[in-house]
């Protein structure tokens, strides 16, 4: 079984984000870039599935500039068998909209044997959360998004996800797209052996087929500043004043 894991290189969630001088991108200084955490859940689950299904292979694929090679290297260290960089000479990713990302991935994966495409439900940078379903529709295959549990029944994938506050159990036969939600697993740390082995592997580089953008970025700004805090006092004595302000000033009660 060929399991493809699209991964995105994103700023670590502890990073502070500032617009750069152009106002069209973020300032990359002091930012540590990592595998998108949700893609990491997808990768972990793919590695577990691979080890359960004989003759399977996990291939990590990333769309982006040459720097995206760092997250592919990390995926190899975690245990991915191969890695492919769909190289696009774009900076941090703000200039790729979700349709371009979906189309570039779909264009490449159409040329490959695919049984499962497993990616994060959302990337923590632009947070659209739609590339999985875009890709599935484009490839004409079913999808189960935001999954919290996955099993291989021998013929189908059976997955659970939360819909309208309920757990829905869905089954589909390969090929299909799954997107990973938090709670699916606890991703492994790359073992030392994996890190060493990853250094020796080559990352296959393929030029990305970029379609024309549908969305144009106009500007990035810092979020609106909040008013300074009013400290109302210490301990329970401050409670009556808090209730008064919530009613009369903030008007939220």
């Amino acid at each position: 079984m060929k399991i493809w894991v699209p991964i995105k290189r994103v700023p670590d969630t502890t990073a502070r984000i500032r617009p750069d001088k152009s106002g069209k991108n973020i300032d990359p200084a002091d930012i540590k870039f990592v595998i998108n955490p949700y893609d990491e859940y997808a990768l972990e689950e793919s590695l577990v599935l691979r080890d359960k299904i004989p003759g399977s292979e996990v291939i990590a694929v990333s769309l982006g500039p040459a720097e995206a090679g760092t997250v592919l290297r990390q995926a190899l260290a975690m245990g991915a068998d191969r890695a492919v960089l769909l190289e696009a000479s774009l900076p941090i990713g703000l200039e790729i909209d979700n349709a371009q990302a979906g189309a570039a991935l779909a264009g490449y994966l159409q040329t490959q044997p695919v049984d499962l495409i497993f990616l994060g439900r959302i990337a923590v940078d632009l947070q659209s959360g739609v590339v999985g379903s875009w890709l599935a529709r484009q490839l004409g295959i079913p999808r189960i998004t935001e999954v919290i549990k996955v099993e291989w029944t021998g013929e189908r994938f059976r997955a659970q996800h939360l819909v309208r506050g309920q757990v829905e159990v869905v089954e589909a036969a390969p090929p299909l797209v799954l997107t990973a939600q938090k709670g699916l697993n606890e991703p492994r740390y790359p073992p030392l052996k994996g890190i060493l082995a990853a250094k020796k592997k080559t990352i296959e580089t393929v030029p990305a087929q970029m379609s024309e953008a549908a969305l144009e970025l106009v500007e990035i700004e810092p979020p609106p500043a909040r008013q300074p805090v009013k400290i109302l006092g210490h301990g329970p004595e401050a409670v009556p004043e808090l209730i008064r302000l919530l009613r009369t000033e903030a008007k939220v009660l």
Binding site: N98, I122, G132, S133, L135, H161, R164
Partner: peptide, 20 residues
């Protein structure tokens, strides 16, 4: 969860992106 799931599929079918 439902809006995101549908929006990607609809956008692909309509040949556009999603402003999410």
């Amino acid at each position: 969860e439902i809006g995101r799931d549908l929006a990607g599929g609809l956008a692909a079918a309509l040949g556009t992106a999603v402003a999410a």
